[in-house]
């Protein structure tokens, strides 16, 4: 249970949002060229980090826009929030 600062609506309770998992997983440019191993990597394998994780969230019960969050998964403290298409913060 935590507060998320939606880049469009401001601070709202986490229950208004839906988590979209790990961010910056790029969809393969040429899916027909992919091997089974590469498909498995893209579809299923996840870093599942304990610590600082870059992830996607959507404000389902609000503006319904997607954005990125940098969150420490060991204590649920949010370090940064940035819009889709923006560069992730380096520190």
């Amino acid at each position: 249970m935590f507060i998320i600062n939606c880049p469009y609506c401001g601070e709202r309770e986490q229950s208004e949002f839906k988590a979209g998992g790990e961010a910056h997983i790029v969809r393969p440019k040429q899916p027909t060229e992919l091997s089974d191993d590469q498909w498995a990597e893209y579809l299923f394998m996840r870093k599942n980090i304990k610590g600082i994780q870059f992830e996607r969230w959507v404000h389902t019960h609000g503006c319904r826009k997607w954005f990125n969050v940098v969150r420490d998964t060991s204590n649920d403290v949010i370090e940064a929030v940035y819009k889709m298409g923006e560069k992730p913060p380096t520190k």
Partner: peptide
């Protein structure tokens, strides 16, 4: 379960 990755051993009240 909650729908986000977390190792915090606590979930959401909702």
């Amino acid at each position: 379960t909650d729908d986000y990755v977390s190792y915090s051993q606590k979930g959401s009240h909702d």
